Amino acid sequence: MFYYEIVCCSCRQKFRVYEGSLKYKLYKERTNKVFHCEDCNSKIRMDAIKNFFRYLN
Rank of each mutant, 00 (worst) to 15 (best):
Y3C: 01
Y18E: 10
F53N: 12
D47K: 07
R45K: 14
F2I: 09
S42L: 11
I44K: 09
V34H: 04
C8D: 15
H36I: 11
K23V: 08
L22Q: 13
S42H: 09
K33C: 00
I6C: 04
K23E: 12
K33D: 05
R30N: 15
S21F: 06
R30W: 04
I44M: 09
K33F: 12
D39W: 03
Y18W: 10
T31Q: 12
D47C: 01
R16M: 11
C37N: 12
G20S: 06
K23A: 15
E29W: 00
K23F: 06
D47L: 06
L56P: 08
L56Y: 10
K28N: 08
C8Y: 10
Y18V: 13
Y3N: 05
E5P: 02
S42Q: 10
A48Y: 09
Y24G: 01
F52N: 08
I49E: 06
R45P: 01
I49Q: 08
Y55P: 00
Y4L: 14
V17I: 15
C37D: 10
Y18H: 10
S42T: 15
Y27T: 00
V34R: 13
K23H: 04
E5Y: 02
S42M: 06
F2Y: 05
E19D: 13
I6L: 10
C11R: 01
G20H: 06
N41E: 12
E19C: 06
K50A: 15
E19R: 02
L56S: 14
M1V: 12
Y3M: 03
R16F: 00
H36A: 02
Y3H: 13
K33H: 09
K14R: 14
C8N: 09
S21H: 08
Y4R: 03
C11W: 08
K50I: 11
A48R: 14
M1E: 05
F15E: 04
Y27E: 00
Q13V: 10
M1W: 01
I6E: 03
F52H: 13
S10V: 11
H36P: 00
Y18F: 14
Y55A: 11
C37K: 09
I6F: 02
I44L: 15
Y24C: 02
R30C: 04
A48L: 07
D39V: 13
M1C: 03
E29D: 09
V17T: 15
E5G: 01
V7D: 02
K43D: 04
F15C: 09
E5S: 14
F52P: 00
G20K: 09
F15K: 07
V7Q: 11
F35M: 12
R12M: 02
C11H: 03
T31Y: 04
R30Q: 13
E19G: 05
V34N: 06
L56I: 14
Y55W: 05
L22F: 09
N41Q: 15
N57A: 05
G20D: 04
K28W: 00
Y4A: 00
K25I: 12
N57S: 09
V7L: 13
S21V: 04
T31L: 03
K50Y: 10
K43P: 00
I6Q: 03
Y24M: 02
L26C: 07
C11G: 01
R45L: 08
V7S: 05
D47E: 14
N57F: 02
Y3E: 04
R12S: 06
E5L: 12
N32W: 12
D47G: 07
I6W: 05
L26V: 08
I6H: 04
F15V: 13
R12D: 03
K43V: 02
E19L: 11
N51R: 13
